[in-house]
Design a protein around this nucleic acid. Sequence first.
DNA 1: GTCTTCGATAATCAGAATACGCATGACCCC
DNA 2: GGGGTCATGCGTATTCTGATTATCGAAGAC
Lengths: 225, 225
Amino acid sequence: MRILIIEDEPKVASFIRRALEEESYAVDVCSDGIQGRDLASEIDYDLIILDLMLPGLPGIEVLKAVRDAKVATPILILTARSKVDQRVKGLDAGADDYLTKPFAIEELIARTRALLRRASGDSAGLLQIDDLILNPTNHEVTRGGQRIDLTSKEYALLEYMMRNAGRVLTRPMIAEHVWDLDFDTFTNVIDVYISYLRNKIDRGYDRGLIHTVRGSGYTLKLTDA
Amino acid sequence: MRILIIEDEPKVASFIRRALEEESYAVDVCSDGIQGRDLASEIDYDLIILDLMLPGLPGIEVLKAVRDAKVATPILILTARSKVDQRVKGLDAGADDYLTKPFAIEELIARTRALLRRASGDSAGLLQIDDLILNPTNHEVTRGGQRIDLTSKEYALLEYMMRNAGRVLTRPMIAEHVWDLDFDTFTNVIDVYISYLRNKIDRGYDRGLIHTVRGSGYTLKLTDA
DNA sequence: GTCTTCGATAATCAGAATACGCATGACCCC
DNA sequence: GGGGTCATGCGTATTCTGATTATCGAAGAC
């Protein structure tokens, strides 16, 4: 799986790169639009992540050029939160999904997975622990067949925990993955969200799945009544 | 396991500190080069994390001074992404690894573990002595397959002892590595925690693993019933 | 060479102090 | 109004303290 990142802010680019590399994707980065357009046309990437704010050639032009060249590779665009119209234009011009800055890295990884999966016509990839099932493609969560509604933060948190089930996840780890790039608050948001999740997922079941590891963090697993 | 962070940005320093503390490491922070150099020479740390951009004394000089003082402690340097030459100089001057800012905190933790592991000559993830097994990724401890619950101090103490199994660990050594800088010496906390550990780990087994070395300290090993 | 004594060191225990996690409700912003 | 965030206070697990009891080992007595 090979991914191209077209992004001029080095900070953001390297952050994304590292995250994707940890997921075992091969990653290329380029920082200007013209080079990006050329790379995208020459090399058969599985996914392109494109920042719309670019020097050289505007991202939207890169997008059009790539689609004009009949490249069908899925494209995920990054936009500033405010630029709604840009986003719309992007989707119109052939982008497959978008993400507004600042975004949680986990969110980006999730969407990356979804796009790659969609592209390869596959649809499996369910996450399951005990009778708790999470479907990343449609963000559906069930326990014992019962549907559970989660807000998007709750969902992101749960997906992260399920992908790392059994490991002890420290608060900084969770913050880094589920909250924003520049998360550095010393509040108890994470505790609060764990509590929300417990209410929705573990309440009423004799065997809880979310466990506190006092002094360290949290972990998701079976056993340990 | 005791780690020194030499970093002048309070935000970064405290973020790293928290993350490492949640991993049960004892952490000291200092914010200028000169003090850092002195601490590094005086105290026997297991790892030093050194920012190359420092007030007082440039990080690279700290590094050289520490190595000149024949301190073999692994050193992880932090550099700005752009400063490639700085990085190279750092490795030349005796650093063991580097990380470019900004970095994912997990990355830092992973490298920390890797360095500590490398230093202790071990290579797997699990620590094992006789039928006592400690798994650092999920903080799980078992003896003879039986799970053992430990508090985080107990865990930290045991991990330190297992990483130094066979060696006689003096009380000051244990205090330095498992407790923090401002350790109020000459209480018997350590004895107390050894006692707690014995209750949880050795009680009921004919062959105890924790041994007292009268007049010196404690050691963890097989044999010598 | 063995036994006893005695000071020094270590182990244990119970209670005090502290830190931690959690629930709850206020706040804010879209 | 709903989702997301933050602050407060409470109950409790954990950590620490200090006193008490147990153990060790060297030195002297027999």
